[in-house]
């Protein structure tokens, strides 16, 4: 008895499920990265230093005090989503917020980021607020001149 074999190729379809999973993960990753960048780090240009002897910022948890560029006293300092004015009261509130945040995660690094063109009069209150919060070490953020992207 003869059997007739079909010469048509078997129907093959690619399984797209793993690829969709990976693409979804990538979407979630970029959404989160975009969100985290906006809350922690203000859009400013730190001092660019030649032959810097600074230390690389690792993946440690950190509190970032941003000195918001501009002349406005309102919202001059930012800690996460919190904003503080460049006044005596604002500096005191910033210090209290740092104390609370530091109590939640003791030993966390505290960074101060300011634009290269910022005046010292605007940066120094942020340093004072960190000192007043009883934090022993502050980290001053710069950009090494020969740093890669």
């Amino acid at each position: 008895m003869k059997t007739v074999r079909s010469l048509e190729p078997a129907h093959v379809s690619a399984n797209l499920t793993p690829m969709i999973d990976v693409v979804f993960l990538l979407v979630i990753f970029f959404m989160l990265v975009a969100q985290i960048s906006r809350t922690q780090i203000a859009d400013l240009d730190p001092p660019e230093i030649a032959s810097a002897v600074s230390a690389f910022i690792g993946d440690e948890t950190r509190l970032v005090v941003n000195v918001v560029p501009g002349d406005s006293k309102a919202g001059a300092y930012r800690l996460g989503a919190l904003k503080f004015d460049a006044t005596e009261r604002g500096a005191s509130d910033l210090s209290s917020a740092l104390v609370r945040a530091y109590a939640r995660s003791p030993g966390v690094q505290v960074h101060v980021r300011a634009d290269r063109s910022e005046s010292y009069a605007r940066v120094h209150p942020a340093l004072d607020a960190v000192r007043a919060a009883g934090i022993e070490t502050v980290r001053l953020v710069i950009r090494p001149m020969d740093a890669p992207l």
């Binding site: 690389f56 910022i57 960074h111 980290r139 953020v141 740093a147």
Partner: peptide, 11 residues
């Protein structure tokens, strides 16, 4: 671009 930091002891 990559950022770095100086640790400054205050107290």
């Amino acid at each position: 671009p990559r950022e770095e930091a100086y640790a400054v002891a205050i107290a």
